[in-house]
Amino acid sequence: MAETQRKPVPRNDGGELDTATAFLTFARESVLKKTDGLTEEQLRRVLVDSGTTLLGLVHHLTLAERYWFGHHVAGGEDPGDIDMTVPAGRTAADVLAGYRAEIAASDAAVRAAGDPDRPVAIPVQGTHHTLRWVLAHMTSETARHAGHADILREQLDGVTGR
């Protein structure tokens, strides 16, 4: 039987923001857990026809965090193309550290916004969605990619879990 990385879902229920951020954190941790103990080569290995790699997923999610929380919520610069191509010369350690740093910046933007009803600083295609909407969007985006990461990790070494 394959080793498992399973952990329980959050039980936070102390309010809307507390619950929303707990589930986003859970999804982020699930993605990062898929990279634990793997080599640079394994993190970059292409296992599916689309060319998706574990490291590419993390790179993509880093840019998505910056786009949604840094740009739309906090009003910062637009990071541009949010693809899965890891720039040449970036090590796996750099990409993973970048994701962790972007998560911290995103969490700070959420804390600064404070209220789930608060509209974003920069509209999304002309609409001032709320922080609530961005949290829901990023939770679903991150969870979707955590599922992709589960499959890639299982293909690499048989490890499963969330």
Rank of each mutant, 00 (worst) to 15 (best):
E3A: 15
R6N: 12
R6W: 14
V9Q: 15
P10K: 03
P10R: 03
E16R: 14
T19V: 14
T19C: 11
A22N: 03
L24I: 01
L24H: 02
L24V: 01
L24N: 04
F26D: 13
R28K: 04
S30M: 05
S30G: 14
V31W: 00
L32V: 00
T35H: 06
T39C: 00
Q42Y: 00
R44M: 05
L47S: 09
S50D: 02
H59Q: 14
L61M: 06
E65S: 12
E65P: 07
Y67L: 15
W68P: 08
H72A: 13
G76Y: 07
E77H: 02
P79Y: 11
I82A: 13
D83I: 12
V86R: 09
A88V: 13
T91F: 12
A93S: 12
D94A: 14
V95G: 08
L96K: 09
R100P: 02
A101T: 02
E102I: 09
A104W: 00
A104P: 02
A108S: 08
A109K: 10
G114L: 09
P119A: 02
P119K: 03
P123K: 11
V124L: 11
T127G: 07
H128K: 15
H129N: 15
A136M: 15
H137S: 13
E141S: 10
R144C: 02
H145E: 04
H145C: 04
A146C: 03
G147Y: 05
H148G: 01
H148Y: 11
D150H: 00
R153P: 00
Q155W: 12
L156P: 04
T160K: 10
G161K: 05
